[in-house]
Design a protein around this nucleic acid. Structure first.
Length: 715
DNA sequence: GAGTTTGAAACT
DNA sequence: CAGTTTCAAACTC
């Protein structure tokens, strides 16, 4: 991408430049949000405000803001996966953060994590809050991107943004449509944040610097002259290096800064990075080493960042998410578990998952993150080395799995036991989830590893050719769980649905055999199940829990579908949101990484769900569900599919953009015949996805529709 | 831990 | 498209 180039060019630019680089979301939010200032005064707003550590300076558009996020960058989404990735990252971040259960959140001393958490305080409120934060940031001139998380915590303390930012943000709104442009922006946002911080530090060595020190725990050996050299880029370096005398203090900052920027870069520019990685020689054994070797500042930056954050899973993938609290603290970059990468192709479409800066920050597996896109040979090798264990030691898969489960790892971490499929079929959870198999896996003859990237990608393509939505999330969650904040929490969110529906005959949709149940969603008319007793909602519309919502949803869904169709005809864009999947097949893996979970209601399982989702991704949906099921204690097994829910839409969008004709919303709409045995994935999925999105945010959708025109216009 | 059940995925 | 087979997870003992 040109993003890299732009970045370097703009590197000099300080806050101002960065500020200028408004994120697409931001711009959109701004556009959409402005009218919504009225929400500030709403009780909900107040509530959220109370929850949020950050003081809302600007009006917060709760409901609408959500839309922007979810739909937000239609243009961007369509245009570039990168942009979406960023957005996705937000979602991920939110979810992760949102989960209260996680130790991370609970601990105050978490230097790196907590800050972020602050950013995304409550899951239920998350989107709103985030928006608030975003708004604030916008108002403050702070970049809204995930990469800016660091800054986010310190918004007040570190107000590096120049007033110009707000003004420029508007200007930037025009960019929303252009992905290529957006990417750089994102990167810059990251940089900007950091720069802003740095500037601030320069100006005020005192306060902020101290905080940063605490915040930034740079373990990385990398902080040395060499690194300095590596990182010094035009502009960036200047700021950091300018204060030679104070260099010591800034090293951390610079490292962080660099790391952030790199992260952005990395995610944004998978291809470039990949190249670099390939070039990098190899000390492949250690991912961190690889990173360092990486020619771009980015790699080293990430490395630093990763180390700095010390949170596992920075790259965030499923692995990262899966990491147990312990793992988080003990982050071992080399640990294969952490090193799992999404099976994303270097291509843009894939980048989504990589782009979860937020998560990355949260989760430390920096090297992992790199590996995601990188797939560099060396990187691969490094990863491979880690992964090799899996292949070599397939023994006691269940044991491992259980162990992991017990450890509290969530869905985010897939662990398969494939023996015959070579982990190249959808039978393999890892493969299906778009992630490489990792150590915990007990698979045999596994080809789902970075080493076999080509094979994996080829296989993926093949499968996708067969079923474009094969890798799409099976359960579709509402555009934003937050959406339903206003609704009665006791009701089942019903924001999620299984795209294709299940075909259960004996399990009564009460066991994890049922994808719907596993995904924590109710069965719908799309299901061909027999004797459905799904606790989340029965096919017939009755729902053991929150059936009201369920039934309501169905109705709404139908209405929505019709609405959507109409709207689609008009705009032709909306679908994109909901429909994901890159035709190329590059998944949305990143999204999957998110694997937010909607937790199952009391699962019959005594054991923790195989892929028990750590509480990381508690989504609003989850919360609602939780409430519905009886509160915090209720921890249903994490849905296997929910993982990808949030990001899905965005991911899917590109495809539609590319091929709008192929999946017309209309076509999809009438997918569901109750009795149909199998729904053609493409249709059903597209439709369902759209509907799913609608459901979750049906109210929003209606609202959001109007906003689209503006977005498109910008483009 | 081994074996069974289940339903999705894959195949025909 | 329907039926069958394969597969691996979920589950039971």
């Amino acid at each position: 991408m040109g993003g890299g180039v732009e970045i370097s060019e703009k590197g000099k630019n300080n806050v101002e430049d960065i500020e200028v680089m408004d994120t697409p979301e931001r711009s959109k939010n701004r556009q959409i949000a402005t009218p919504i200032s009225k929400f500030e005064e709403s009780p909900v707003f107040n509530f959220l405000n109370s929850l949020s550590p950050i003081r809302p300076i600007k009006s917060i558009h709760i409901s609408q803001s959500i839309n922007p996020l979810s739909f937000a960058s239609l243009g961007s989404v369509f245009t570039s996966p990168h942009v979406t990735s960023v957005r996705e990252s937000r979602f991920l971040q939110r979810h992760q953060l949102s989960d209260p259960s996680k130790p991370e959140f609970s601990t105050d001393d978490q230097t790196t994590v907590d800050p972020e958490n602050k950013n995304t305080v409550n899951v239920t409120v998350q989107s709103d809050e985030q928006k608030e934060n975003v708004d604030q940031r916008e108002s403050d001139g702070e970049p809204s991107y995930d990469c800016s998380k660091f800054v986010v915590d310190f918004p007040e303390d570190y107000e590096c943004n120049s007033p110009k930012s707000s003004i420029k943000a508007q200007e930037m709104a025009g960019y929303a449509g252009n992905s290529s442009e957006l990417v750089p922006f994102v990167v810059q946002d990251c940089e900007t944040n950091m720069e802003g911080v740095i500037h601030h530090a320069d100006q005020n060595n005192e306060g902020p610097s101290c905080d940063w020190d605490n915040f930034l725990i740079f373990e990385s050996p990398v902080v040395d002259g060499r690194e300095e050299n590596m990182y010094t880029q035009p502009g960036d370096g200047t700021e950091i290096t300018d204060n030679a005398g104070e260099k010591t203090d800034y090293e951390h900052l610079s490292g962080l800064y660099r790391g952030m920027r790199r992260r952005c870069l990395v995610f944004e520019m998978g291809g470039a990075r990949r190249k670099h990685l390939d070039e990098s020689s190899g000390s492949g054994s250690d991912a961190s080493v690889l990173l360092q070797s990486d020619d771009n500042n980015t790699s080293s930056n990430d490395h630093k960042l990763l180390k700095t954050t010390k949170l596992p899973g920075i790259g965030l993938h499923l692995n990262a998410l899966a990491a147990t609290p312990k793992e988080y603290k003990i982050v071992n970059p080399q640990d294969s578990s952490t090193s799992r990468r999404l099976l994303i192709r270097p291509s843009s479409s894939v980048d989504f998952h990589t782009s979860n800066p937020g998560q990355e920050l949260l989760n430390n597996s920096g090297p992992v993150a790199l590996s995601l896109e990188g797939e560099t040979d060396s990187a691969q090798n490094a990863v491979v080395g880690n992964v090799a264990n899996e292949e070599i030691n397939p023994s006691s898969p269940k044991k491992k799995r259980r162990k992991v489960e017990q450890a509290g790892e969530g869905d985010s971490c897939k662990r398969c036991n494939c023996k015959k499929s070579k982990c190249l079929k959808l039978y393999c959870e890892c493969f299906a989830a778009g992630v490489y198999c990792v150590e915990p896996c007990a698979c045999i003859d596994c080809f789902n590893k970075p080493i076999h990237e080509d094979t994996v990608l080829a296989t993926r393509k093949q499968i996708e050719s067969r079923n474009p939505l094969a890798f799409a999330p099976k359960v579709i969650k509402g555009p934003d769980s937050v959406v339903e904040i206003g609704e009665d929490p006791s009701k089942t969110p019903a924001s999620a649905r299984h795209k294709r529906g299940c075909n259960c005959k004996k399990s009564g949709c009460l066991k994890k055999y049922c994808e719907c149940y596993q995904g924590g969603v109710g069965c719908s008319i799309n299901c061909r199940c027999e004797g459905c007793k799904n606790a989340f909602g029965r096919k017939d519309g009755s729902c053991a829990i929150g059936h009201e919502a369920e039934a309501e949803e169905d109705e709404v869904e139908m209405n929505e579908k019709s609405m959507l169709d109409r709207n689609f005809h008009k705009n032709g864009i909306e679908n994109d949101h909901e429909t994901n999947m890159d035709p190329t097949g590059l998944p949305i893996t990143p999204l999957r990484a998110a694997r937010q979970s909607i937790q199952l209601p009391l699962s019959s399982n005594k054991k923790p769900p195989r892929s028990s989702f750590p509480s990381i991704g508690s989504s609003s949906g989850f919360n609602a569900r939780q409430a519905a099921f009886g509160g915090p204690n209720f921890l249903p097994p994490p849905p296997k599919f929910s993982k990808q829910l949030e990001m899905v839409r965005e991911d899917e969008m590109p495809e539609f953009l590319q091929d709008g004709s192929s999946s017309s919303p209309i076509r999809g709409i009438k997918l569901s015949s109750p009795n149909r045995k199998r729904v053609s994935p493409a249709r059903s999925s597209s439709v369902e996805t759209s509907t799913g999105g609608l459901r979750s945010s049906r109210k929003l959708i209606l609202q959001s529709i109007p906003s689209f025109p503006s977005l498109t216009n910008n483009q």
